[in-house]
């Protein structure tokens, strides 16, 4: 069985946002729509303070709250574990937006262009792939994955902080990393069983 998963190594991530932009280019998401976002937060007080980076995408939960919540069945979990929104089915109720514990789906209120009375050729082309009023989120780059490519954000991450693979294969790189480097998921108490794992920002051996 295949269950696609991503591992994001917080010890490697430098918060550069290349992933956010690469995702934007790959999916031509309209103005305002970012499927990948890098949260930044600080802890501690000066001079023992610290800055942290937290890239956030859809967790492709095995028990997706969004899917359960969606009244239209626009959200489905595929056999390979990828949770997708079908924007032909979505009625834009934004219930999934509320339901997701990771704030992953967002409603594309309108096809926002970057320039008020000018649509760049890139946007014109990209807009065909989006529907105003519907919910959107990271789809694990499934059209790339289906063609044997890695997701755009994984390929582009300048720090090689992101890994993609099959969680059901204990020998895969992602499984190995999770095991060896104490991978964890965010808010496990939500019981959504995310397929996106994080590796600790400070390694145990240091």
């Amino acid at each position: 069985m295949t269950r696609y998963a991503m591992v994001i190594d917080l010890a490697r991530c430098v918060g550069c946002d290349t992933c956010s932009i690469a995702c934007k280019a790959e999916h031509a998401t309209p103005r305002g729509m970012l499927w990948n976002r890098v949260l930044k937060y600080e802890t501690g007080s000066y001079p023992h303070s610290r800055l942290h980076f937290l890239p956030m995408i859809c967790m492709h939960c095995a028990e997706p709250e969004c899917e359960k919540a969606c009244p239209t069945r626009a959200i489905t979990k595929r056999v390979d574990g990828i949770v997708v929104v079908d924007n032909n089915r979505c009625m834009g109720c934004r219930y999934c937006v509320l339901a997701c514990p990771y704030a992953s789906p967002r409603n594309l209120d309108k096809l926002g262009s970057y320039y008020e009375d000018y649509l760049t050729p890139f946007e014109k082309m990209g807009f065909a792939r989006h529907k105003a009023g519907t919910a959107e989120k990271c789809d694990f780059c499934l059209e790339r994955v289906e063609r044997g490519m890695e997701p755009a954000c994984v390929v582009s991450c300048v720090a090689k902080a992101r890994f993609f693979g099959n969680l059901d294969d204990p020998g895969s790189e992602v499984s190995r990393l999770i095991k060896e480097k104490a991978g964890f998921v965010l808010n496990p108490e939500m019981n959504t069983e995310p397929s996106v794992y994080y590796l600790p920002s400070v390694r145990g051996d240091r």
Partner: peptide
């Protein structure tokens, strides 16, 4: 439609492209 690193990992970029390159 898109910009990616050279798949041949040509140095010094080594097949990567950063925020500004894609943007």
């Amino acid at each position: 439609a898109n910009v990616e690193g050279h798949p041949g990992k040509v140095p010094p970029g080594m097949g990567k492209v950063c925020t500004k390159g894609v943007a």
